[in-house]
Write a protein that binds this DNA or RNA. Structure first.
Lengths: 235, 235
DNA sequence: ATGTTCACTACTGGATCCAGAAAGGGTGTT
DNA sequence: AACACCCTTTCTGGATCCAGTAGTGAACAT
């Protein structure tokens, strides 16, 4: 059988997903033996997987002491959004003149779904019962889907890779469990998506660029606000 | 003895440096056993090092077939400069209001050295003898030193890491061996450094940003031109 | 009570060993 | 001559084994 992937790669992917999804809390020490019996392999591929995660900056490697899941500071989070803003701006600028009608349709579809989820999220946040994280997650994914259309059109693999890496940093924080009022910010995000769509459709790359950048930055402010609120709630 | 670094890490660093410096040609297949006897270790740490390089995108991993040094296409090179331009612009913008007098002094010193090397390079390129690559390398390093001052002031570790990763991509290409006339472009680079310095000193972050971005982009065009000329020479 | 030493445990880093994949080459068939 | 088939070689991926480090706690000295 031709093995298209190695166990080390599989494990790395699984662990990455789990960490990013918040399944493993930051600061947790990952024990090689524990992982090896969990995945039913020897320690060798586990270690190679951990090396990979370390190179990606997802875990920190301390020689002879083990690897631990990195926790991101508020500063790092802020910086990640700054970076994403620049990269997203670039991708949007480049994508604009390259968008085919099919791409525009895909963008519209993504926008529509995002818009619906935004409405649903507002609806939910109006009710008193505890926040359902799945809806928030879906909303987030719809957001990403929208931007992915742009990335595909831009055809800048490096930019895409780096931007998605920057995305990762703030997943895993416990934004999900937020139960807070952010009507205006949700709506703002939706409006910005429309603005981006309009600018792209109009073919004005510079305008699209500016809007895209501002969009990411304000998303960053949203997340920061949520996290602050969470921190306040916890006390 | 307290080992502050592991063999896998050492090997990864050594290999990375060697590849980036062009010591190993792109496309070369790296054999585990060969590396293990070269570094006088077993294959285990070698493989972990290779995993790391693969995660960094320096080599490509083909299961059961080996790793080979990635060769970068003209498109990737261009993209790397686009990314660097955005990141450098961001760093410069953020750095401007944070620059201390000491930072400004350091910037001046770096600019001065760069200016001198530029002059030396022009001088050399006027003579008929074959180009000395060391001078070009020094010129490049002086360029980086200038920008490093800005990174330090900006205090954005993520941006710095990513930008330096983007730098890497085009080292290793055989730009060094170029023997071509680029007076105007060399000078342009020098002038741009001064312009950046002026804008920073004047405290106008936006102006500094714009100049920095344009600077990186024009550096990219310089490199592209050199590579094209090299390609033409080789035929 | 506090601090030091030292053995013990738990774990990582590296070496070695084994199974299986991929490339190459020869042989036989047509 | 072209092609399929098989066998050998070479190499990777993974498992196991060994050495050495960091952490822990008990015994001991002050």
């Amino acid at each position: 059988m031709s093995s298209l992937s190695t166990k080390a790669d599989d494990i790395a992917r699984l662990l990455e997903d789990e960490i990013v999804a918040g399944g493993i809390a930051p600061g947790t020490v990952l024990r090689q033996e524990q992982l090896s019996e969990r995945f039913e392999v020897s320690r060798t591929p586990v270690r190679e997987a951990l090396r990979r995660l370390a190179a990606l900056g997802i875990v920190s490697f301390e020689p002879n002491r083990g690897v631990r899941v990195r926790s991101i500071s508020a500063g790092e989070l802020r910086e990640a959004f700054l970076v994403r803003a620049e990269l997203e701006a670039l991708a949007t600028e480049v994508a604009t003149p390259r968008m085919t009608p099919a791409d525009l349709d895909a963008l519209d579809a993504a926008e529509k779904r995002f818009s619906e989820l935004t409405a649903a999220l507002r609806e939910q946040s109006r009710r008193p019962e505890p926040g359902d994280s799945t809806l928030f997650v879906e909303w987030m994914q719809a957001n990403y889907a929208f931007h992915d259309v742009i990335y595909r059109a831009a055809d800048l693999p490096l930019v895409e890779r780096l931007a998605k890496g920057a995305r990762r940093t703030f997943l895993g924080s416990r934004v999900w469990s937020a139960k807070v009022e952010f009507d205006d910010l949700y709506v703002k995000n939706d409006l910005q998506h429309r603005a981006i769509r309009e600018a792209i459709a109009a073919g004005s790359a510079q305008a699209a660029r500016v809007v895209a950048k501002e969009h990411v930055l304000s998303s960053g402010r949203l997340i920061e606000t949520v996290l602050e609120a969470l921190g306040a709630q916890e006390r």
